[in-house]
């Protein structure tokens, strides 16, 4: 069983929303190096550091619920990791919870099932109740079709995304006039994945909302796995 394995919950907000997932990995690696926290390396011809994430976040989306797992060369207290990293992380990345993994656990990428997002968008032609009605009828469709274009073959495929949507709530509270807030739960991970941007394009189209991309912002709030048939935050899985 691998030693010194940690599950870390972190944020990607502020200016960090402008960098890609791959770039974020390098940012984290360099931060660990500056913090003098030695990561364990894989064996073989091209050793790489043992760090991986639950699920990549698209550029442009913020998050306060990201997860990574990392294996260190030494045994450190979570608090020690947090304080060493605090001064090395750029603004927008914070390690909010750290737990040592003491029992055998599959990779978090294979455990993650659901993501919760908070979505804010501009619309000046609807009331909140009208929006709720539209969302309700959207969710009541037998099938919600989405066209997916394969990036490699450029072929079009029609998907039913209804099974990938667990929940869409229109929230009461908005800070700005004509901005609506949605709280959504979507399937995430290798067993099925719905990108929140793709969802919003689909809703905009099917509900005739004309959502302006420049006035749409998305934040991932949390990621969940399934434990004993219940949805559990990834940090609580262990």
């Amino acid at each position: 069983m691998p030693m010194n394995r940690y599950l870390i919950k972190y944020t990607k907000t502020d200016n960090m929303k402008y960098i890609s997932h791959l770039d974020l990995m390098n940012v984290l690696l360099r931060a660990f190096k500056r913090a003098k926290i030695d990561l364990a390396y894989s064996q073989g011809f091209s050793p790489h550091p043992k760090i991986s994430t639950a699920h990549p976040l698209s550029l442009g989306i913020e998050s306060i619920g990201e997860y990574l797992e990392v294996e260190l060369q030494v045994d450190l207290l979570p608090d020690a990791i947090a304080s060493a990293m605090k001064h090395q992380l750029p603004r927008g990345i914070e390690l909010t919870e750290i737990k040592k993994v003491t029992e055998p656990m599959k990779s978090i990428a294979s455990i993650v099932e659901v993501s919760g997002y908070l979505i804010s968008f501009y619309n000046d032609s609807l009331t909140a109740d009208e929006l709720r009605e539209k969302i309700a009828s959207y969710l009541s469709l037998d099938e919600i079709q989405m066209i997916k274009i394969s990036p490699k073959t450029k072929k079009e495929k029609v998907l039913d995304i209804k099974p990938l949507i667990y929940q869409i709530d229109v929230l009461d509270h908005t800070d700005e006039e004509n901005y609506f807030l949605l709280s959504v739960l979507l399937k995430t991970g290798s067993n099925g994945n719905l990108n929140p941007m793709a969802l919003m394009e689909n809703i905009s189209d099917k509900c005739s909302l004309n959502i302006d991309r420049d006035r749409l912002s998305i934040m991932r709030k949390e990621m969940y796995g399934i434990k004993e048939e219940k949805r559990v935050r990834l940090i609580d899985i262990i």
Partner: peptide, 19 residues
Amino acid sequence: EKILLRVEKPARYIGTEIN
């Protein structure tokens, strides 16, 4: 900031790097 998400590699323009 309003237009950064419209361009490729917006991080080219934001500064705030370490050091």
